[in-house]
Amino acid sequence: MALHIICCVKQVPDPETPASQFRVDEAAKKVIPAPGIAPVPSQFDTIGVEAALRIRDALGDVKISVVSMGPDSFRDAIKHCLAMGADDGYLINDPALHEADHWVTAQVLAAAIQKLAPFDLVITGRQAVDWDMGVVGPTLAELLGIPCVTIAKDVKVQDGKVVVERVLLDGFETVEAPLPAVVTVSNELGEPRYPQLRQIMMAARKQVTVWTAADLGLNPAQLQNRVNVEALYIPETKVETEFIEGDTVEEKVDRLLQRLREAKLI
């Protein structure tokens, strides 16, 4: 029977936006999109799709579904994954969910994944490259009640198990988990593949299924964010220069050492 892999993807503001163009609305605690710079699929998420495609390259009979939650523009991220080779795309687009934090996101995605059941493997990026929280994957596993392996550099499915090489600070470890499971992948896995033109053309014709919260049996009013953003601002970097004065070199060095000790730098 075909293996079913579900990849979760997110669209993010282009991480390569020049710093001069990056602005936040401190009052609304929101990022202001840079003019003329299109959002892109979060890089770790496309690496997740690459991991799924590699499993399909190895096993053959694998169905890959892509799930995303966000406004209509997220369709582009899904289309990109379809062009890479994924089979189906699902977008949960509900205005009531546009302010969702990781907790609400994970609940919605979990509901979508259950709606797509049976499934064998859920793959997400280790973190989205906008907020860099890295919690949706593990939260999903918690909600689905299945094992979670994070920060993978290699994912294989063998004998009904998933075999994962996890990146550690000083190397890697190999972990096995029973299916179904959630795996979050890291950039050590390798570059996501370049879509072939025929697949791009096919992806352009494919329909992305759009669901609302109600379609998943969820009531947005009951989904409460757990993360509360207190403040959002671009940190200022200040450079202050102080000249240490003194009559002799020894005196200057003594005072310098004293200042460094006061600043707890030595």
Binding site: D14, S20, G36, I37, Y194, Q196
Partner: peptide
Amino acid sequence: MEQASMPETAQATLMQLEQRGHPWRGTQLT
């Protein structure tokens, strides 16, 4: 277009061109 087979740097350049409309990845200028 048929094989998606190219040097890594060529792939990165094409992705860059496609996503950002220019080939200069990482530029801080607009």
